[in-house]
Simulated scan of single mutants.
Amino acid sequence: MSSYLITGAGRGLGLELASQLSRRPRSEVSFVFATTRTTVPDALKNLIENSDGRVVHVPLQIRDRTSIDRAVANVSEKLDGKALDVLINNAGVLHFTSDGIANMNGLREAFEVNVEAVHSVTSGFLSNMKKGGEKKVINISTTLGSIAYSPTYAMMPVPAYKISKAALDMLTVQYAQELDKEGFTFLAVTPGWLRTDLGGDQADLSVEEGAKATIDVIFNNGHEANGKFLNIRVPGWEKPRGANNNFYDGKEVPW
């Protein structure tokens, strides 16, 4: 029976992860802590109200250390001395740059949200998670951050997003290496190109498909996968297809 915390759970993938996790048997999932910056969107309110107390809202400004410390205290109090088992760093930001790399905008914010804030949230929860048995941290990444795949996505005008996600993958590895002997499992996971506000209407997969496949990765990979960058697996998408020849084969992503 594991507890989960998801950043950026007010919409899109984060909200769907919270929803699907809350429907798992109690023997698998005890609490889902769904974080948002301030207000609680109606969709998350409805999920909380219908979760029989299993989904709990936690205010969290991921770029504010004081807010992170308050969130850690709130979660620790709710768990009554038990550890948070799984941290899912899902919150992220994407900027488009349509007029060339020299005019790239949003690089500072991309690093602050997609890399530095992930580090801050992770480091903030470490002392709590060290008391537990599962000790799993999932960083939501993307194949757009893979240097090996960069020729495939050369025409996608989101350089700040690509650069920051490549850095996130290295951050994942650094944590994985240092905390390996303490039993932690750090994974970078690409959830696929999803039909969300971020992904747009032309994306490959529904948010429900992406969330289900991401949860499968979380459940099916333990400490032996520590430090890996993993693709989701979606039946029928094992080979390249769709507008961008994406594929979701469940294997490790070269990066």
Results as ranks from 00 to 15, higher is better:
Thr172Phe: 06
Glu116Val: 15
Thr196Gly: 13
Thr152Lys: 15
Ala213Thr: 10
Asp216Met: 04
Phe96Leu: 15
Ile101Pro: 00
Asn89Met: 03
Val158His: 01
Ile140Leu: 14
Pro151Asp: 02
Asp216Leu: 04
Glu238Arg: 05
Trp237Tyr: 14
Arg195Ala: 10
Leu94Cys: 14
Lys82Val: 05
Ser127Thr: 15
Val173Met: 08
Asp52Pro: 00
Lys212Tyr: 10
Thr196Ser: 13
Ser67Met: 10
Val29Gln: 04
Pro254Ile: 01
Asp216Val: 09
Gly8Phe: 11
Ile218Glu: 00
Leu21Lys: 06
Arg195Gly: 06
Asp80Phe: 11
Asp197Phe: 05
Val121Leu: 06
Asp85Cys: 05
Glu238Trp: 02
Phe186Trp: 10
Ser2Glu: 04
Thr172Val: 11
Thr142Arg: 06
Gly133Asp: 10
Lys251Trp: 02
Ser67Val: 09
Asp201Ala: 15
Thr142Asp: 02
Ala148Gly: 01
Phe219Arg: 13
Tyr248Phe: 09
Gly81Pro: 01
Ala203His: 07
Glu252Ala: 14
Val75Pro: 01
Arg241Cys: 10
Arg65His: 01
Ser127Cys: 13
Arg65Gln: 15
Ser27Ile: 08
Thr214Phe: 02
Phe229Ala: 03
Ser120Arg: 13
Leu60Lys: 13
Ser22Tyr: 04
Thr66Gly: 09
Arg233Trp: 02
Ile48Lys: 07
Gln174Cys: 12
Asp99Ala: 08
Arg63Glu: 14
Met155Glu: 11
Gly242Lys: 02
Arg108Ser: 12
Asp64Gln: 08
Gly124Ala: 07
Leu13Pro: 11
